[in-house]
């Protein structure tokens, strides 16, 4: 309410601006409540972002003077690096698999279990379980499954009398193995989004369609799925943003190997920037990642999510 400066106030000019706006301790509370978070956020989230774009023009190992100005060399090095190309390719693969396999899987499962019942709840919990595990744990468990000497892969090779096969050591298939883990870990999350949306579909619409003679399949494709379009758009958004951020899962599974064939963008950043303390080079990767995220988020929201709000 006191937001408008009451310019109409006639000559009587009562009390000061401060006391007028400080009714109920408003200003004191503001001064106490806002700055801590604002400072923390600025200092540890926003400032590093700007510093990253600054550092990316230098060669620097984090110690000593920041004087080795390189211009755009770090960027051209990143962009020319074949491991970076692989990482981008891998990210695109994650996006493709997320959209073409994970999302339909999650949607089909959600359609099966979205109604309230005892059995459905159990299924939902099971499907959601991998999502709450830490990425490193999921990675280690699957590393065992994929282990050529022990795991399930070994079981198959033994059964067919083949040689031991280490899929995570196979340049061709290592990333495909990671993709399976990604589906395993995250489809439950998308399922939950769809379930929430499906539960919001008014029941009378579904019933009206039934009375109009629609089959179950028709109600699903003509009523339910169009009505949860916003959830699908959102889920795609999370899938793509998630693909851009993937890291924890890669490290236990392959650590980016063999010969840097299974890096995600962040694990690439970690391997070539952080662990070698190449601040400038790593920052350049970070900046590129940032640009990718912001461009994606803005275009996506403009294209799909605008009319919703």
């Amino acid at each position: 309410m006191p937001q408008d400066t009451t310019s109409l106030s006639q000559g009587k000019a009562q009390t000061s601006w401060f006391s007028r706006n400080n009714q109920g301790g408003r200003l004191w509370t503001l001064l106490l409540f806002l700055p801590p978070a604002l400072c923390l956020f600025t200092l540890f989230v926003v400032v590093p972002l700007f510093e990253a774009s600054f550092f990316s023009f230098y060669r620097w190992n984090g110690i000593g003077e920041l004087n080795n100005y390189l211009g755009l060399q770090n960027y051209s090095k990143v962009i020319g690096h074949s491991a970076f190309h692989t990482a981008i390719g891998n990210t695109l693969k994650i996006v493709a698999v997320s959209l073409l396999i994970q999302l339909p899987l999650a949607l089909s499962v959600a359609l099966c279990v979205y109604k309230q019942s005892w059995a459905n709840t159990v299924f939902r919990l099971i499907f959601f379980l991998p999502y709450i595990l830490a990425e490193v744990v999921a990675g280690l468990i699957w590393k065992f499954i994929y282990d050529g000497n022990y795991g399930v892969v070994n079981m198959f090779t033994e059964f067919f009398g083949l040689e031991n096969y280490f899929i995570l050591g196979d340049k061709q298939w290592a990333f495909a193995a990671i993709l399976i883990v990604i589906i395993w870990k995250y489809f439950g999350f998308h399922m939950m989004i769809f379930i929430a949306a499906l539960q919001g579909v008014p029941n009378d619409l579904v019933e009206a369609a039934k009375i109009d003679g629609a089959t179950r399949l028709q109600t699903t494709f003509l009523i339910k799925i169009p009505l949860i379009k916003h959830a699908i758009i959102l889920s795609m958004f999370f899938s793509i943003l998630g693909a851009l951020q993937l890291f924890d899962l890669i490290i236990p599974l392959t650590n980016g190997g063999p010969s840097h064939s299974s890096h995600s963008i962040v694990s690439y950043l970690y391997t070539f920037g952080i662990s070698r303390m190449r601040i400038g080079f790593g920052s350049a990767i970070g900046v590129l990642l940032f640009i990718a995220c912001v461009v994606f988020a803005f275009t996506y929201q403009n294209a799909f999510m605008k009319d919703k709000k």
């Binding site: 510093e51 601040i279 970070g286 990642l289």
Partner: peptide, 10 residues
């Protein structure tokens, strides 16, 4: 909007 990792070095 952006991942933790972008500014991790600074």
């Amino acid at each position: 909007m952006f991942p933790f990792a972008t500014g991790i070095l600074p």
